[in-house]
């Protein structure tokens, strides 16, 4: 396992994507801590949510297709009906009070966990641009 990991790192270092990749890994790590602090109560340890109550994040079509809307929900809260993986949710997520870099970190974590994949890293700048209305 270690050898595979080492050769993977060497391979990645050879590629220009290295710095982007480490940045993403670091962001995801910070994001996982924020997730355990702010999100896990409702969205559950593996992003599975609670059917009909709290929408799943794992393999969530809403999260994958609505990048900006998801950032907006994290920044300003979310109220009203949404449909996630064919199931209706009509709850209320209060604004979390996270700073913009923290929103980016937790977005990078949830869009790259539990079977989710996101090729384009979310930056603090991208979060900053998302307005309330």
């Amino acid at each position: 396992m270690k050898i595979i990991l080492a050769s993977y790192i060497v391979l990645m270092m050879g590629m220009s994507g290295f710095s982007q990749n480490t940045k993403l890994e670091e962001s995801k790590k910070r994001g996982s801590e924020i997730y355990a602090d702010f999100c896990i109560n409702c969205h559950m340890p593996n992003g599975e949510g609670v059917k009909g109550e709290f929408p799943p994040l794992a393999k969530s079509d809403f999260l994958i297709k609505n990048r900006t809307k998801s950032i907006k929900a994290l920044k300003y809260g979310l109220k009203g009906e949404i449909i996630v993986n064919g199931v209706k949710y009509n709850g209320f997520m209060a604004p979390l009070g996270l700073s913009e870099d923290e929103v980016a970190d937790v977005m990078n974590y949830i869009t790259n966990s539990w079977g989710n994949k996101n090729k384009k890293m979310i930056t603090e700048q991208e979060v900053a641009k998302v307005a309330k209305k």
Partner: peptide, 8 residues
């Protein structure tokens, strides 16, 4: 008020 997480 410090509005963050469960706080407010």
């Amino acid at each position: 008020v410090y509005v963050r997480g469960q706080g407010g």
